[in-house]
Simulated scan of single mutants.
Amino acid sequence: MKRIYVQLLSAAAFISVFACCPAVAQSQAAAKSVDCAAIAERARGLTLAETGLSLKDLSITIAPDQEKRFLPARVALLEGPCADGVQAFRMSQFVFQDGAFYTAGLDGRLVHANDTAGLMHYWSGLFFNDHPEISQARFSMAANVGFSSKLDDAPLLRVGVWQAGDTWLVAAFIRQQQGYSVPVELLRSRQPIRSVSYFPSPDTNTGRLGLVVDGGKTIALVSLDWNHDAITRAMRAAK
């Protein structure tokens, strides 16, 4: 798989997010003093920390027929008194449940992004609700695999999250005007997956999936390099 990514963010910032960011220790008193409802204040104390955790440690399994399409995951933990509010991440950018955006600096600390116009365009919208059905599973959200968020006649590849009992699954599907393709399961998790995002690679049918995994006391951020060439070729054939 080619691993050449469009660096809309600086290479240094990317490396700092998942390779060199030590957690900042906080006292219980300091944690209690943070007002997580205040958009600017909640960033205080939020940091990213590298971990040696694997998918197995997080109770995540890749679908057997998809294992060759993924490279080993990279896992970071979002730490701080307001970490529970994160909804999704894409590279070093984060969106919280109330829609507020943050970016990770070189030191791994999150900073509120005041000008969100560019970020909204960069994310191609946030989440999508239209989806195919999966038997005995409840749909949560979906994200585009690509830049366009317009509903037109062209097929569009997306990835989504479903909950089936006490298991969460991520699947890819093709959205068309006349309906949806049968979802292709990519992975399953025994811990809640809040969201999935996608960051594309140029000129190849590869990119990076970002999963927010809710471990209860911790929020794990999982990055997976994904080769979706077969699915994309099927999408093009469906035009």
Rank of each mutant, 00 (worst) to 15 (best):
P192I: 03
S27I: 05
D98Y: 00
R74F: 03
T61K: 12
S223P: 00
G108W: 01
M120G: 04
S197A: 12
E133I: 08
G216E: 03
A88P: 06
V159I: 09
F139K: 01
M141K: 03
N114V: 12
A238R: 14
A237Q: 13
L77W: 11
I39V: 15
V24M: 07
L151K: 11
T51P: 12
G165I: 11
S54L: 07
L169V: 05
A83L: 09
R3V: 06
F70I: 08
I134Y: 02
R158Q: 09
M91H: 06
L119E: 13
A100V: 11
T204M: 06
G210H: 14
T116W: 01
Y180V: 00
E50F: 06
K217N: 14
I174Y: 00
A76Y: 01
T103F: 02
E41R: 13
H112R: 14
S223W: 03
G146D: 11
K56E: 13
Q136H: 15
H228E: 02
I60E: 06
L151D: 11
T167M: 02
E185M: 10
L53N: 02
F96T: 07
R190F: 07
T206C: 15
H228P: 02
G108H: 03
Y122Q: 11
S33A: 15
S92Q: 12
T232N: 14
L53E: 09
S149I: 05
T204R: 10
R194K: 13
A31K: 15
V182Q: 14
S195Q: 00
R44I: 01
R90Q: 13
F147A: 11
I15C: 07
V196F: 00
R138Y: 02
T204P: 06
V145G: 08
F14R: 14
K32Q: 14
E67H: 04
S10R: 12
V182H: 06
G80D: 03
F127Y: 08
L53D: 07
D153L: 09
C82T: 10
P64R: 02
D35W: 03
R158Y: 04
A154H: 12
V222Y: 01
I219A: 05
L211K: 07
L186Q: 05
A142W: 05
I60Q: 05
D229N: 08
L169H: 08
A31Q: 14
A30T: 11
E67M: 07
P183K: 09
C36S: 00
P200H: 10
W123C: 06
V17H: 11
I62M: 02
G105N: 09
H112W: 00
I39A: 15
K239S: 10
T116R: 06
F128P: 07
G105H: 05
G210Y: 15
D98R: 09
I60T: 09
P183V: 10
G146Q: 03
S181M: 07
G80F: 00
F96M: 12
G215I: 12
F173S: 00
P22G: 02
